[in-house]
Computed example of a mutant assay.
Amino acid sequence: MKNKQKYYPRQTLIAFLLVLFAMPLGHALMILMEKFMGEGAMHIAGFMMGFVGLILVIIGVFVKGDTRQTLWGFIGGLLFWTGWVEFLFLYYARRYGVQPEIENGEIVTKPEYLIMPASFGLWMMVMTMYVFSTRNGCDFITWIQKVVFRTKRKVIAAQPMTRHTSIVTFMELNMMLWGLYLLLMFCYDKRFLGDHHPVTFLVGVGCLIGSFFILRRQLRLASWGANIRMAIATVVVFWVPVEVLGRLDFFKEIWIEPEKYTTQMICILVAFVALLVYIMFAAHKKKSHE
């Protein structure tokens, strides 16, 4: 008789919500900085935010404990992405006068996202390194290696990189955000598909279904650190249909106008901090009983 697979719904739900709440908070932070800071001060603050994020990730390399390393990498990665990726795209889009995409008198795509697809080659460069040089726990990369290398996989990608949990979390978050933003920008581009194209809708549906398969794997992870890292994959993939539906005005994206939805955004922030504190306390308690 086979042993039943054990599931960990508490860890999964809390980790999922932690990462999920971080998504609108990141959007809202950038919007508020754009609206209430002068342009020069905003770009300096954005650059400093990215720098602080990098420092947090590096600190995470030296702290002890899988959960704490994961949290340092996750929070540092969020600040890094917002400050040194999104704000730098914003800076150069404004500096060189890139115009937003406008439909029916409303901005549907901001200039910084219009120029983001130009980074596709850089994303592929990093992915080539991962595919040809590392063995890792990413199912997508592992699947590519199995398809491309077949029986030679163990020879070509023989061993993993030096593993620092903070760096792993940082790279997972940023590579997934980067890759799925590129996918969305390709889908929204009318020269290719367009936001109302059936393929764009299918991409959203496919990512929604895919997120449930990832969630199923996440449910099997007892460790807080591993569960949070899987939650990053779950939420980032789940966020694709959220973005697609928001683009189609299926619901109101309150994080785009956070100053109008102060109560809701504060509630999300409080919930995020509460979950973060709970995870740190639970991980410490678990370690002290081992």
Score class of each variant (00 low, 15 high):
3 N>I: 05
3 N>V: 05
6 K>P: 05
9 P>W: 11
9 P>S: 12
9 P>M: 06
10 R>M: 08
13 L>V: 08
13 L>D: 03
15 A>M: 02
17 L>K: 05
17 L>P: 02
21 F>I: 05
22 A>G: 13
23 M>G: 10
25 L>R: 00
29 L>K: 08
31 I>W: 07
31 I>F: 09
34 E>K: 13
41 A>E: 08
44 I>F: 00
44 I>K: 00
54 L>R: 00
60 G>Y: 06
62 F>M: 14
63 V>L: 05
64 K>S: 07
64 K>P: 05
67 T>E: 10
68 R>K: 13
68 R>Q: 14
75 I>F: 13
76 G>A: 08
78 L>E: 14
80 F>M: 03
81 W>S: 04
82 T>R: 10
83 G>I: 01
92 Y>P: 05
93 A>N: 14
94 R>D: 15
95 R>E: 09
102 I>H: 03
104 N>Q: 13
104 N>I: 04
108 V>E: 09
114 L>G: 04
116 M>W: 00
117 P>M: 01
120 F>R: 02
123 W>C: 15
129 M>I: 10
131 V>Y: 00
132 F>G: 06
132 F>E: 06
136 N>H: 07
137 G>D: 14
139 D>K: 05
140 F>M: 12
140 F>S: 11
142 T>I: 10
146 K>Q: 13
149 F>T: 03
152 K>W: 11
153 R>L: 12
156 I>R: 02
156 I>Y: 12
158 A>L: 14
160 P>M: 03
164 H>G: 13
166 S>V: 02
167 I>N: 02
168 V>I: 12
171 M>V: 15
171 M>S: 12
173 L>V: 05
173 L>D: 01
176 M>E: 12
177 L>G: 09
177 L>E: 05
179 G>F: 04
180 L>D: 03
183 L>S: 04
184 L>T: 01
184 L>I: 06
184 L>W: 00
189 D>M: 07
192 F>Y: 08
192 F>K: 11
195 D>W: 14
195 D>C: 12
196 H>G: 10
197 H>I: 04
197 H>F: 05
198 P>N: 08
201 F>A: 09
201 F>N: 11
202 L>D: 06
207 C>P: 03
208 L>R: 04
212 F>D: 09
213 F>H: 15
218 Q>P: 04
222 A>F: 10
223 S>N: 15
223 S>T: 08
223 S>H: 10
224 W>P: 13
228 I>M: 08
230 M>G: 06
232 I>W: 04
232 I>V: 06
235 V>L: 04
238 F>C: 04
239 W>M: 11
239 W>P: 03
240 V>E: 02
242 V>K: 02
242 V>P: 03
244 V>L: 06
245 L>C: 07
245 L>Y: 00
251 F>P: 01
258 P>C: 07
259 E>Q: 13
261 Y>N: 15
263 T>S: 14
266 I>D: 13
266 I>T: 15
269 L>C: 07
270 V>G: 03
271 A>I: 09
273 V>N: 07
273 V>I: 15
279 I>P: 02
279 I>Q: 04
279 I>D: 01
280 M>V: 11
281 F>V: 15
282 A>I: 06
283 A>W: 00
288 S>A: 15
